[in-house]
């Protein structure tokens, strides 16, 4: 392996890795709001709204993220939606992961025993208060873990925005392979950066999980 070359290209890859983190983090935050909205819509009293939310989740989960990205970026202008590549990556990433995350959040909420809901309601707490004081604190652990899994998928998915020429990690890696003819060196370094990002996400998730489930250790 050509160590000198690796040292030379490292700054470029670090810079590109930061774009990967940036785009994934923004998509995660927006995705969380979209997911929460979807969870609320799915429990709406009005059937067409429930049906619409369910269909949205089904369609997004049933089609490739890559095709969604191409559709919005290249097809968007046809319906008056013009986004720059970075914004497009964030928006499509958020709307995509939001659908998956809404299922994760719903699953976590449903994992709390029904007796908890009954006990809270029997004390006189309303539906929202029960969600706030009783259900969400108990669902938080599972929710954090499943959102963590999705965050990792989001990081790996973000490599696809290289196709619409966002200069993130995979884009930079492909360019450097082409210009240096040293695929092993470039791959090793860029893989290492993905691994660092993913392990950082896992570390944060584990920290938050422990905080949210402290009561089970006491």
């Amino acid at each position: 392996m050509d160590i000198n070359l690796m040292i030379e290209i490292a700054p470029l890859l670090v810079k590109a890795a930061w774009v990967t983190v940036d785009i994934s983090a923004r998509a995660l935050v927006f995705g969380f709001f979209i997911a929460s909205a979807l969870v609320a819509l799915r429990t709406s009293r009005i059937p067409p709204i429930r049906w619409l939310a369910r269909s949205y989740i089904s369609v997004v989960r049933g089609t490739p993220y890559f095709v969604q990205l191409l559709l919005v970026f290249y097809g968007g202008p046809a319906i008056g939606l013009r986004l720059d590549p970075f914004t497009c990556g964030v928006v499509v990433g958020a709307f995509n992961i939001g659908a998956y995350m809404s299922e994760a959040i719903r699953g976590a909420i449903e994992s709390v025993e029904s007796g908890q809901n009954e006990a809270s309601r029997s004390l006189g707490f309303g539906r929202l208060e029960t969600l706030q004081y009783i259900i969400l604190p108990q669902a938080a652990g599972l929710m954090i873990r499943s959102v963590g899994v999705l965050a990792i998928i989001l990081v790996k998915n973000s490599s696809l925005v290289s196709i619409i020429s966002v200069i993130e990690l995979t884009y930079q890696a492909q360019r450097l392979i082409g210009s240096t003819y040293k695929p092993l060196e470039v791959f090793t370094l860029s893989a290492l950066m993905y691994i660092i990002i993913i392990y950082a996400v896992m570390g944060i998730v584990e920290f938050l999980y422990r905080r949210a489930t402290r009561y089970t250790f006491l």
Partner: peptide, 21 residues
Amino acid sequence: NHIRQNMGMVFQHFNLFPHLS
């Protein structure tokens, strides 16, 4: 909710809130 605040209910399986002391 108002009615229930005037009644205390005790369940077979306790249903204590596990995340609270």
